[in-house]
Design a protein around this nucleic acid. Structure first.
Lengths: 119, 119, 119, 119
DNA sequence: GTGGTCTAGACCACC
DNA sequence: GTGGTCTAGACCACA
């Protein structure tokens, strides 16, 4: 996996897990890999994975059974969507439109781009 | 000026200067404040401003006349737009649509939001 | 290490690193010392080393793995040579010949000098 | 006149005066322009010219008649040549060859380049 | 441990 | 006056 330059790796891994949950590849009560396992497969220090799991557990997206492993929480999907939707509307949309204004990009252009992408 | 918690101050100042150039408040060949001046007005260490100016100079957005000060470069606008558009299309738009997909938000919702904002 | 009076220390350190890369003492993917380490060994403030590394990273001569350290970039040698050759042919050679002209020094004299030096 | 980025303007002006002396455009006892005059023609602060003249006077290349102006010194040519030859052999040639070595440029290449230039 | 950022204060060359 | 560089020391996020 390749990582974005200016974003914490542990957050990027968290996001990719969330995406897998939203997309249905991971479902409630599914076990997710151990820190060592995932660390190995992603070529990352296990500490980094631990941080990812800690982050997700605090947000009630995964939970831990001691001595067994981490599992997708029952309400994971809702929690993720709630968090994302919130940030999306309050933070991302405004800067998005500000950029569009500054760069003189119209909604039409975006829509065209969108149609191409979603083909 | 208030600064965002999780972004380097020197970059935030750089962005605000770019915005002033794009909006026409600053034009090519305009002199911009000295590092000490701007540092004082923004309540920031002059070194931090120096870093901002260094950053912008490397991107050919401003240039320096020794012993005199910094000036907006002739091609500043284009350079800024080029950089922004690049990042926008290659990095921001994809994650934007990915989010919309995941959150099942339609273009219509966005458009409505957009119309409200632009009133 | 001794530093030239009239050239920035951070640039002199950058050059010495480049020389070590060109001479093969440092190879692609080699880790280079941390800012604190190198600062200590050269009797220089770590910030100064940080500036050196920043400078070289922008030129794609070294790169950074977050939390781990700096490494020699794969294309480091080429980048260095490209930059040096460029400057050499466009800036240094012309003044070199201009001087020779003004001082009426012939290529023969230079060649003799060169042969002595390369013994 | 255009100025090099990383060299003091007053030194660049000094060099151009020296070149004019060596090339015979300026001869011993010729009057050179006043600081104000030269400053105006070069688009430079008179203080900068004053610094140039001070620099050259210390090296006995020009001298001053109070209330009248600056003049080329009788031994100007020799002084210039002496200074240049010295620096050339002791400082410039060594770095020149060091660069050639590092960049694997042969004397032949240089000679060819030289022949083209001197056509 | 690593680098990234920021402050405070200093000295310098240059205009 | 201007910017350029450097130091000393601090705090932070990240691995």
């Amino acid at each position: 996996m390749e990582f974005n330059e200016h974003k914490a790796i542990y957050l990027q891994i968290a996001e990719s897990l969330c995406e897998r949950i939203l997309s249905g590849k991971l479902n409630a009560e599914d076990r997710i890999p151990s820190v060592r396992e995932l660390g190995a497969t992603m070529g990352v220090n296990p500490n980094t994975i631990a941080r990812t799991y800690d982050h997700l557990q605090q947000r009630e997206i995964i939970y831990n059974k001691r001595g067994i492993g981490y599992f997708v929480a029952p309400g994971a999907r809702q929690e993720i969507i709630k968090a994302l939707k919130d940030r999306f509307l309050k933070e991302e949309l405004p800067v998005f439109f500000k950029r569009m204004d500054m760069l003189s990009i119209s909604m039409n252009e975006i829509e065209n781009y969108y149609k191409q992408e979603s083909k």
